[in-house]
Write a protein that binds this DNA or RNA. Structure first.
Length: 355
DNA sequence: ATGGGGACCCGCCTTACCTCA
DNA sequence: TGTGAGGTAAGGCGGGTCCCC
């Protein structure tokens, strides 16, 4: 049985270079179905996809470390974070055309997630190291120094103060003992934005990573780790769904098998009690394992001399698109049934006489 | 043309930390 | 107040791919 499950949409090219400012989430969502699975993309496919997305950028990897850093304007503040509108209206940093075409962009950069401009916040020179220069313990402090007051429409000021205080407290702790492993919690806004970005693309190319990092005031390494962990969580969730579904399939098939066994017993009992069963047409269903044709063979033996035999056979080709689970179910139903019935028929004296 | 080395990314596993009941 | 469970950011490792020499 083949089980295809997918979270989100099918692989598709990156759209961060698209000229359309609209983000389409129509293909997003949770899909579960039976049938031929497209399979998970191999790493080289994904690499190729990422590379294709970078074609216009030349060799992105080398540029990251050698060329001047990307100067990406922060987006005008996204309505979703201000007014809790549907998340589909979130805009991502790589959709740079949004900036130019946004009529209300007079607010200027910095209103997106409103990154607080601390002196230690990622400078252009720091970003060229892809986080290496930002990886000092103190650099993570800036992750929590975002200006929540402007954009947290649905949250109380008290909550924001608590969160900011926690962040600053942790930051000070990190400053005290810089050797301790830092465990930083991303803010809800950062997580939500990363989540929306993940819905768009479950993997990031360097440009997207840098843009997201800058947008959220995180280190690129943090964005990268978040996506890695997010993919792992998705996979885990998917495995759980798979397991649950297969469990249900197993239960269904077990029940079906039980029912058929009972049916077979009834037929056997009927045979022993009513020997004239021969007057009824015996129908045998067989399926070719290779071509998956289902053949229905009806054999009628009539007359007293037993030499009149009529056999009609119809073949039905199953739709190739029929899901494999159904095929497996059919096979489970047909093969035991046909083999047992055929064996049963061969044991019948009248059938032997007819043959 | 071929192979080695480096850079980069990914998945997987694990650890360490945080939050909450 | 202490504690265990669950969530999650981050570290480490191995493997794959690509590019350069």
């Amino acid at each position: 049985m083949e089980l295809a499950l997918s979270l989100g949409d099918a692989p598709k090219p990156f759209t961060f270079l698209d000229k359309t400012p609209k983000l389409s989430n129509k293909d997003l969502g949770f899909c579960m179905g039976l049938g031929t699975s497209s399979g998970s993309r191999s790493s080289d496919e994904k690499t190729r996809e990422a590379r294709e997305s970078e074609e216009d950028d030349g060799d992105e990897r080398r540029r990251v470390s050698s060329d001047p850093p990307l100067q990406l304007d922060l987006l005008p503040f996204t309505p979703v974070l201000r007014t809790h509108q549907p998340s589909s209206q979130l805009r991502f940093p790589w959709l740079t055309d949004n900036l130019a075409s946004e009529p209300g962009s007079s607010d200027g950069p910095g209103r997106g997630l409103d990154v607080n401009r601390f002196p230690t916040v990622a400078t252009a020179a720091e970003e060229t190291d892809d986080g290496a220069a930002l990886s000092s313990p103190n650099s993570t402090v800036s992750s929590f120094q975002m200006d929540f007051c402007v954009r947290n429409g649905g949250r109380s000021k008290r909550d924001l103060d608590v969160e900011t205080e926690r962040a600053s407290s942790r930051a000070s702790d990190d400053e005290e003992n810089g050797s301790t492993r830092k465990k930083l919690r991303l803010s809800k806004e950062q997580s939500a934005f990363l989540e929306e970005s993940f819905k768009e693309h479950s993997t990031l190319n360097p440009k997207q990573k840098l843009a997201l990092a800058k947008q959220l005031n995180l280190r690129p390494r943090q964005v990268e780790v978040w996506f890695q962990n997010r993919r792992a969580r998705t996979k885990l969730k998917q495995t759980e769904v798979d397991c649950e579904y297969l469990k249900r399939c197993c239960e269904t098939l077990t029940e079906e098998n039980r029912r058929l066994q009972k049916e077979l017993q009834e037929l056997r009992a009927l045979k022993t009690s009513q020997p004239f069963y021969m007057q009824l047409p015996a129908t045998t269903l067989t399926m070719c394992p290779s071509c998956e044709r289902v053949a229905t063979t009806t054999t009628t033996t009539s007359g007293t001399n037993g030499n009149t035999t009529a056999t009609t056979t119809t073949a039905t080709t199953t739709n190739n698109t029929t899901n494999s689970a159904a095929m497996s179910l059919a096979k489970a139903r047909l093969y035991p049934f046909s083999s047992q019935v055929q064996a049963h028929m061969q044991q019948a004296p009248a059938h032997q006489a007819a043959s």
